[in-house]
Write a protein that binds this DNA or RNA. Sequence first.
DNA 1: AATTCCACTTTCTATCACGGAAAGTAAGGT
DNA 2: ACCTTACTTTCCGTGATAGAAAGTGGAATT
Lengths: 94, 94
Amino acid sequence: MPRALLDAVIHAPLRLQIAAMLAAADTVDFATMREMLDVSESVLSKHVKVLEEAGYVAIRKITSDHRQRTWLGLTSAGRKAFAAHAAALRDLVG
Amino acid sequence: MPRALLDAVIHAPLRLQIAAMLAAADTVDFATMREMLDVSESVLSKHVKVLEEAGYVAIRKITSDHRQRTWLGLTSAGRKAFAAHAAALRDLVG
DNA sequence: AATTCCACTTTCTATCACGGAAAGTAAGGT
DNA sequence: ACCTTACTTTCCGTGATAGAAAGTGGAATT
């Protein structure tokens, strides 16, 4: 029954970690996240895109200091969804 | 980095629920679990099999009272794996 | 202005997971 | 021998995931 409460977009292992990192750190840049998760650029890019298309993650590309960096952060919908998912997991896992 | 700590066998939504139910109830029979999860027999059977092949679930077929029932329970390895997974999730989800 | 970098993004290709329907199996009843 | 119960396995189609390689767009360099 609580299956409906588990958000498939967030539940996938990598995306759960992405969401958790963003929930904890507010914003993280692409390269740093890639290193922390130890995945290829294409994989991270695609998972971030899934989260973005779900309206959970906001992508901001900023050029500063002769470097362009992509900053990632949760939207308010993303924060809500993550909180709900976290609650569902806690409920399940005790 | 904690990706390694998430057990793919347990993480799948349905199997996470199965494991959680068995962790909470010790044993549950197939039919009851099927109703609680609201899935088809084939789907439950296959997920249970995955858990069994991982050594996490023990299947016991018992005939009593003119009815045969399949009882499911976690093995000690299953209990350990679930506990570890639960810890990893809590760590991730805060 | 053309070229090179950089930092991702998208495409390509292959594999693997998942679901349900339907067919199959095993152990009793009748 | 046949039927029912209670799953199990097969069949088949769909969707997710991964990584390599090619592509894109905006600096920075020449």
